[in-house]
């Protein structure tokens, strides 16, 4: 409430995966919206990455939530947007770098979904454990840019919709307990394509910290909020390139398009390594017949797409 995330009349999309966090988030948002007359128009927005045995089951949960919470639902699939499912991507790139593709595509897909629904705001179910883990991971990876912004409750890029994490201070345990006592319906599984040993170390460490002193998670978040990147370091930081090297604004591709071009041309590492990028550049311009992400034109007024409304 004190973060003043919403204004009356806002159209808000809830990033729904069918897991515990987003299910509880949808329930709490709906409950508070009705109880305190926030005046928000709520939508469920799901991304189908196309992972057999993982996403297809959890999407069933989202569809049930749509009925239970009486909210419009939009499911946007990688297949529909990019012509590739994660299963197909993994079969080409292997398991090592597949998270890069999934992360970049999901971010863009959420933005596309938000634009299709014509919403002002996306809320996601990231909880305190996720934020604390991200703070630790960014320190261990030396990712100064992300470390500076990962504890912000609300972020907004130049050309993206506002994103918020209302469960920033809610422990995973509290969310699970809430779901249990409220008898909420959710799907629990780990992504089958993310054997990230490094993140696993950090997660296990965080759980040990929490067992030693439960406030550790919130203490890490407080630490993350209390520091910032030194001004002199910020000044020397390179501005993140919007376009690949050598590309001008007129022929530039965003990260998602670069990755997609690499996939289409059978050179998937062009989006993840400099060597791969060089190889792609040497192979000449992209053929005409490859799939690309169509330009999106924002429809004026109310959403121009069909959303699944509860029957």
């Amino acid at each position: 409430m004190q973060s003043e995330l919403f204004d009356p009349g806002d159209r808000v999309a809830i990033g729904a995966s069918g897991g515990k966090d987003s299910t509880v988030l949808a329930y709490v948002m709906k409950t508070l919206n009705e109880r305190y007359q926030y005046g928000l128009e709520l939508f469920l927005l799901s991304i189908d990455e196309g992972i057999t045995g993982y996403r297809d089951d959890s999407l069933e949960t989202v569809k049930r939530n749509q009925q239970q919470y009486d909210m419009p639902l939009k499911i946007l699939s990688y297949d529909e947007l990019y012509g590739w499912t994660m299963d197909a991507i993994v079969s080409q790139v292997g398991r090592k770098n597949n998270c890069t593709f999934c992360g970049v595509f999901r971010r863009q897909a959420l933005d596309r979904g938000a634009a299709m629904l014509n919403v002002d705001h996306i809320v996601t179910g990231h909880n305190a454990d996720d934020i604390a883990e991200t703070v630790l991971m960014n320190i261990m990876r030396g990712d100064i840019a992300r470390l500076g912004r990962c504890t912000a409750i609300c972020t907004q890029g130049e050309d993206t919709v506002r994103r918020s994490k209302p469960f920033k201070y809610a422990y995973e345990k509290e969310i699970v307990m809430y779901a249990y006592f409220k008898k909420l319906d959710y799907f629990s599984t780990e992504c089958i394509y993310s054997p990230d040993a490094y993140r696993g170390h950090a997660r296990a460490f965080l759980k040990d910290l929490e067992a030693a002193r439960p406030s550790a998670i919130i203490d890490i978040i407080h630490s993350g909020e209390a520091f910032e990147v030194k001004k002199e370091v910020k000044a020397t930081q390179k501005v993140q390139r919007k376009y690949p090297p050598g590309a001008s604004e007129s022929n530039a591709l965003c990260k998602a398009c670069t990755l997609l071009e690499g996939l289409e041309r059978g050179m998937a590492d062009s989006g993840t390594t400099d060597r791969g990028r060089k190889r792609l550049d040497e192979a000449g311009p992209a053929p005409e017949n490859i799939r690309t992400i169509p330009y999106f034109k924002l429809p004026s007024g109310s959403p121009a797409i069909a959303v699944e409304t509860p029957s």
């Binding site: 703070v135 320190i139 406030s215 203490d219 407080h222 630490s223 993350g224 209390a226």
Partner: peptide
Amino acid sequence: ISGISQGTGFSV
């Protein structure tokens, strides 16, 4: 890491 986990971020 120990300090950050105990909330000493301000004096890191």
